[in-house]
Design a binder for these strands. Structure first.
Length: 865
DNA sequence: CGGATCGAC
DNA sequence: CTATGTCGATCCG
């Protein structure tokens, strides 16, 4: 039996192939090798529009990589060392927050759709099949995979790879049913389990495990589904066995992993009970039990991963696929061992592009990802490198977060070329109808409508438009989408728009809070600081113009200018009272809304309930009972005191730079901000860090608030941790030293002048803390201090730092700096944050980045958010 | 905000 | 005979 299993599993080339990701060798002779597969695919692909577009996209990625490499060239050893120090601090914090106390399970049904189809149609067993259409396959069975037939491959190409391939059309209804059956089982182990699509789910079985300890054997006993087995016997249990490929044992077709059930169970099986099996109390046993039950119930097999967090669990479930399971023990070292040689591509969230970019840096495995952390932090956005760091440390989410509110909803359709405008419009309407139905199911309304078009050359375009009141009905959505579509049609006129796909999306949903004050009292309206309908009131323009951003006004033009201009016009033409009323009336449906809003305003005036308004411009509370006064105040704010006021705020924010830059920024919103490259950001980092750490905290707090659309003005106390403070202090020292060495910093001279230098300027004698060894250094000159720092660095103290952190030095051998990889920036990691919750801002770079980005937007338009 | 891009399935 | 999907999230400018 044991033997058979082993033979079964090792001769099961499916499993092998899947695990390897590719089938390069050792496969049966009818299998195609990788080269041959690629050749066939290439022949089928070459010359197609699709392929040309793929090439184009590929080149874009290559350009990005090239850009990154250029940026990398500019990175100095010093920068790298500095980054290394910062990150290793962070690593220590992350280590401390590592949470291994949860047991997360990822369940993944094997070749789900294909397996269901095979189960329901015995004729398909043993044959290579795929589910989908000639245009696109959703999945394939393991037999077909030997020919290179994969999910997301068009059927006609699959046919070339495997002429005998049977393609079964999708039948979601059926899969949904099966999926439900599986979920019924899962919910017993974790009522809050998180399904991911029809064939995957995460469970947190921590609690179950605890309870289970006290369970009697009976509660852990499960019976073979004799009925089903009997049926299978008639139907052909052989087929079943074959379906499971490689002769996984007859009935429960499980446990081909190295701790076969049979080894553990004999004593546990109560001799009196035939046809049953008792599972133990360990996590592995629980998962075996789950898989056993799934198979008994659905005749389908699942793979599973057990680990301390979701990311690891997912990667784990991939390891012994199909019909296998794998566990990462809740120990730090076990996690690191698992990751050591794991290709980054296996990590959820790392896709084709990210893989390629990292590969250009010589990074293929997770441990390399760790080794290059300093470099990555200089080349990628903070969100990206933090995510990389989480990955390389094996950190991930330890709870199954309720999927937050959705942020968008969309629908799209591919079809054969449509080029008649009329048809395009009706298609568009259809999409809007579908979408609106879905939206209304969830009771959602959104303010942004996006139209997506793919032309016959596979080039994709999206065009969005944000309107002032949220939409959800077919008519409302279509009204916006129609405009967008019209603009696109016009833009290629007199040629027809030749498209093969159209999609419509709605986003910008109202939050719960917003939904409430959508019930609009003027008080909430003003306090919320939400848009006020200035735009609509500009004479000579139809409202329509404002609903699509295609009117002549430059899209990047100053919001403020528009708003103010409109506002001024209003003031001239309308009494203050009317102004507010008008502001409240929402464009398009103005007549009905207007009446309604007017009534509300009147109500408001007649009531004494709300006597305090927050001015949306200056944020001062206005305790005016009457709207006239309020309007007058707003007018004043907008016309006169605005600039002054804002500058005061700016000063309050305690950033010299802000104040200095405010005016130019105000006049010309297109600050050089956007053009800064990553290296500039370094300068920025140093710069902000060079002010006192107090000011950093304060301004950070402040900016954060500003951005958050909550219009508080109070100053929050600093809440940076001591560690972060410390880091900021260190930051103060390094910029100076780097600025002497690095051309780039010379360019941004103002940085030094405005802040950094004051640490040194008038003091011939300083006591400075060496950022490396932490000892106090009396220095008479920067040069001598820097010399000390150099010595420290060269001593390899960084290594010590790492080792203190007890980072497996085998696994992560961080040779200093010589490994300077370098890349370009721009790569974004788009993975949903799977990171564990971390407290606050602990990284100077992040501090400055936040402050900076908020800073750049610290114009009046901010107040209108 | 708008547009493009990435990744999951 | 042809023929390469749908969705949500994120990030930059």
């Amino acid at each position: 039996m044991d033997n058979m299993k082993k033979v079964g599993s090792s001769s099961c080339s499916d499993g092998f192939l899947l695990r390897m990701g590719l089938n390069d060798n050792k496969a049966g002779m009818q299998d195609l090798d990788k080269e041959k597969i690629n050749k066939i695919i290439m022949e089928a692909t070459k010359g197609s529009k699709f392929y040309e577009n793929e090439l184009k996209k590929d080149q874009q990625v290559n350009q990005r990589i090239e850009k990154m490499m250029q940026l990398k060239e500019k990175i100095t050893t010093q920068q790298l060392l500095k980054a290394q120090l910062q990150i290793d601090r962070l690593v220590m914090e992350l280590e401390q927050s590592r949470n291994l106390s949860n047991t997360i399970v990822h369940i993944d049904m094997d070749a789900f759709y294909a397996a269901v189809e095979m189960r329901d149609n015995p004729e398909l067993k043993e044959k290579p099949i795929a589910v989908g259409s000639m245009s696109m396959l959703s999945t394939s069975n393991y037999h077909a995979r030997r020919f290179g037939v994969r999910a997301a491959m068009p059927g006609f190409i699959a046919k070339k790879l495997c002429p005998h391939l049977t393609i079964v059309p999708l039948n979601f209804e059926k899969y949904g049913k099966v999926s439900k059956e599986v979920r019924e089982i899962l919910t017993e182990y974790d009522p809050n389990f998180m399904p991911m699509g029809l064939d995957e789910a995460y469970l947190n079985i921590t609690e179950h495990l605890e309870e289970r300890l006290n369970w009697s054997e009976d509660k852990r006993r499960f019976f073979y589904n004799t009925e089903s087995t009997a049926k299978k016997d008639k139907d052909g249990i052989n087929k079943s066995a074959k379906f499971n490929e490689g002769g996984y044992s007859s009935s429960p077709v499980l446990f081909e992993d190295n701790t076969p059930l049979t080894d553990e169970l004999p004593e546990q099986i109560a001799p009196s009970v035939e046809n049953s099996v008792v599972f133990g109390t360990s996590a592995e046993e629980v998962v075996k039990e789950i898989r056993f039950r799934i198979e008994q119930k659905t005749q389908l097999t699942a793979s599973a991963g057990i680990a301390p967090n979701t990311m690891l669990a997912k990667m784990c479930s991939d390891r012994n696929k199909p019909n296998g399971q794998c566990r990462i023990a809740p120990e730090r070292q076990a996690v690191l061992d698992f990751l050591k040689d794991l290709p980054i591509r296996k990590v959820p969230g790392i896709g084709k592009v990210t893989e390629k970019m990292l590969k250009a840096l010589g990074i293929v495995t997770c441990s390399e990802l760790y080794q290059q952390r300093a470099l990555l932090s200089l080349l990628f956005s903070e969100a990206s490198w933090r995510h990389f760091l989480d990955i390389s440390l094996g950190l991930g989410s330890t709870r199954l977060e309720k999927d937050g509110e959705r942020k968008s909803m969309s629908t799209e359709r591919t079809f054969s070329e449509i080029n008649r405008a009329e048809e395009q419009y009706s298609l568009c309407r259809e999409l809007c109808r579908d979408l609106s139905q879905e939206l209304q199911k969830e009771g959602l309304k959104g303010k942004t409508v996006t139209l997506k078009l793919k032309n016959v050359n596979f080039e994709v375009k999206t065009r969005a438009s944000t309107v002032l009141s949220s939409v959800s009905t077919e008519e409302e959505i279509f009204a916006v989408a129609k405009e967008l579509l019209g603009t696109e049609i016009d833009s290629v006129a007199p040629h027809p728009l030749r498209i093969r796909l159209m999609g419509v999306r709605v986003s910008g949903f109202l939050s719960e809070e917003e939904k409430k004050y959508q019930q609009k009292t003027i008080t909430n309206f003003l306090k919320s600081g939400k848009e006020i309908g200035f735009l609509r009131l500009q004479p000579g323009k139809s409202n329509q113009d404002y609903f699509t951003k295609n009117s002549e006004s430059s899209p990047r033009g100053s919001f403020f200018d528009k708003k103010r201009a409109a506002r001024q016009l209003n003031s001239e033409n309308l009494s203050p009272n009317e102004t507010v009323e008008k502001q409240l009336s929402h464009g398009r449906k103005s007549s009905s809304n207007f009446v309604e809003e007017t009534r509300k305003v009147t109500d408001l005036q007649n009531s004494n309930v709300c006597t305090i308004f927050t001015c949306p411009v200056c944020f001062e509370e206005q305790s005016n009972n009457n709207l006239e006064e309020l309007n007058r105040h707003i007018d004043e704010c907008l016309n006169g005191s605005l600039v002054k006021d804002t500058m005061e705020i700016s000063k309050n924010l305690n950033s010299r730079e802000n104040t200095l830059n405010f005016l130019p920024q105000f006049k010309n919103e297109k600050v050089d901000e956007c053009q800064r490259n990553k290296t500039d950001q370094l300068a920025e980092t140093d710069h902000s860090a060079s002010t006192s750490d107090n000011s950093i905290s304060n301004s950070t707090e402040k900016f954060t608030q500003m951005g958050s659309a909550k219009l508080h003005r109070e100053r929050e106390p600093s809440n940076l941790s001591d560690i972060a403070r410390n880091m900021c202090m260190k930051q103060c020292l390094f910029p100076k030293r780097i600025s002497q060495d690095d051309d780039h910093f010379k360019k941004t001279k103002y940085t030094e002048e405005t802040s950094s230098s004051r640490f040194f300027e008038d003091k011939e004698e300083n006591v400075l803390i060496c950022p490396v060894c932490n000892s106090e250094q009396k220095t008479t000159s920067l040069v001598s201090f820097n010399r000390h720092v150099d010595v420290c660095l060269n001593k390899g103290l960084i290594q010590e730092l790492t080792e203190k952190n007890d980072f497996s030095s085998k696994t992560y051998n961080m040779e200093n700096s010589n490994r300077v990889g370098g890349l370009s920036r721009g790569q974004q990691c788009t993975n949903p944050s799977q990171g564990t919750k971390r407290s606050g801002l602990t990284n100077p770079q992040s501090v400055s980045k936040k402050a900076k980005s908020s800073n750049s937007k610290c114009t009046i338009e901010m107040f209108f958010r």
